[in-house]
Every structure is written in structure tokens, then in C-alpha cells.
Computed example of a mutant assay.
Amino acid sequence: MKINDYLSHEELKRLISALLVVLGFISIAAFFGFTVVPGLRYQAYTTGESQVQAVQGETGWLDPTEYPVMAKEVIPPIDPKTVMTPNPALMARGKALFAQNCATCHGPEGLGDGAAGKGLTPHPRNFTANAGWKNGTKLEDIYKTLDEGIKGSSMVSYNYLPKKDRMALAHVVQSLGAFDHGASDPKALANLEKLFASAGEVIPNRIPVSRAVTVLCREYAEAHPQPTATTLR
């Protein structure tokens, strides 16, 4: 017996079309689950200096947290003097960003005891302890971690945040530990200063994951219309 013995040609065409649509939706969901969602793990940058919108839901690896819509923003070069040394405004911004982006895993005091970090391997870094820091504890080391993330862990890159915000976070992270973080490398600091002063940034448009999925599904459906009873006659 063959499938043709059970289904007419028209019914078979309709079944194949429906199957292709389902497979398309599964492919889109898989794409977002393994590529897009990790990059949107943390709350996107907002324009206020210290006011940061709270994350809607716990942030974690492959957690499709809904983030607000962000318009494209062009940021000019920054005077290194305003970010290389801690100042009240920079620290206030960094603390707001830490509470929003880091505390869920690292804990509000940086002890590595955040609720979202309990099931992570390796365990989130305890910023108050001078041990086990992957890239080091100096300012340039912390900035590198925020910029690149750490492979093999749930510590993803924060390079979607403006450089000024990443430096604000680096100062706050360093301030959580009372131990000696070591003297910075003058050459590394000079490179950071050059990075801030030489080039501006373009922060791209961002939309929530659910909206992106809806748009992609609509576009796929429009490009692959499902046959109707009328078209099959």
C-alpha cells in the first residue's frame, strides 16, 4: 500500500505544504534559541544616565527575556578623563547597570550568590574574593571580560552596551573587592584611552525577541503561502 491509496493528489499537496510551514517555524524557533537569544541575554542600553529600566524576568542563559524597543543611537568619541577614573556620575551609572544586568547571577553585593546563578556551571564569580579570576582583576582585565565574555561559561559579552557603560561596570566590579587588584599596565591603559577617544559608536536598533519571531513568521508565511481549497481546484 502507498500513501496515494489513502490521499488524493490535492490532499497530498496540501499535507506537504502544511508540513513545510511547520518545519519552517521549527527552524526559525531553533535559530532564535541557539543564536539570537544568547546575544540578547541582558537588558539593552537605555538613554538615561542612571535610570535603567528593570529586566522583565530573571536573566539567564538562553532566557528569552523581553527587552524594550531601542532606537538606533550614534555616540561620539568620549573624553578618556571622564571614564578612566571613577567619579560619582560614572559610579552611579555603573551601579544601576550592575543591579540590572549582573546582580541576578552575581548577587547584589557581588558574592556570586544571585538566584539565577545557582544552576550555572561554572558558578558566577565572587567579586569580593581575590581568586579564580579568568582574565585578571585589573581594570583593563575586567573591561576585557565585559567586552569579550568568557568562553565555556554563561558570562557573555556585554559589547552591545556602549563603551562608557562597560567602563562604568568595570569600576563598580572592581570596587566590590577590598583586596589589592594590582597595578594596571600603562600600555593597556593607554590603549583603552585611545579606544575611547579615537572612535564613536553606533548602537543598532533592537526589538523584543517575541516581536522578531512574529515578524519572521509573518514574512515566511507571506513568502510561502499555504494553498487554499480554491487554488487546488
Rank of each mutant, 00 (worst) to 15 (best):
I3D: 04
N4M: 12
Y6F: 13
Y6I: 10
L7Q: 09
E10W: 14
K13W: 15
I16Y: 09
V21M: 03
L23C: 03
I28T: 01
V37E: 08
V37W: 07
G39E: 11
L40I: 11
A44K: 06
T46A: 01
T47R: 11
E49V: 06
S50V: 12
Q53I: 14
E58L: 14
G60H: 10
L62P: 02
T65Q: 13
E66K: 12
M70N: 05
M70T: 09
E73G: 10
P76Y: 11
T85A: 04
P86E: 07
P86I: 08
F98D: 04
A99Y: 08
C105K: 02
G107R: 00
G107Y: 04
G112I: 08
G117T: 05
G117F: 02
G119R: 10
L120F: 12
H123E: 14
R125H: 09
R125V: 02
N126L: 00
F127N: 11
F127K: 06
F127L: 05
T128I: 08
N130W: 05
A131S: 13
K134I: 03
N135K: 02
T137M: 07
Y143C: 03
L146F: 04
L146Y: 00
E148R: 12
I150R: 02
I150H: 07
G152L: 12
G152K: 01
V156A: 09
S157T: 02
N159Y: 02
N159M: 09
Y160T: 15
Y160M: 14
L161S: 06
K164E: 15
K164D: 15
M167Y: 02
H171A: 06
G177P: 08
F179E: 01
A183Y: 07
S184K: 11
D185W: 00
P186F: 02
A188D: 06
N191P: 07
N191G: 10
N191T: 14
L192E: 07
E193N: 01
K194N: 14
G200P: 03
E201L: 03
V202M: 10
N205V: 10
N205F: 13
N205H: 11
P208C: 01
S210K: 06
V213M: 15
C217A: 10
E219T: 15
A221R: 13
A221W: 14
H224N: 13
T231F: 03
L232D: 11
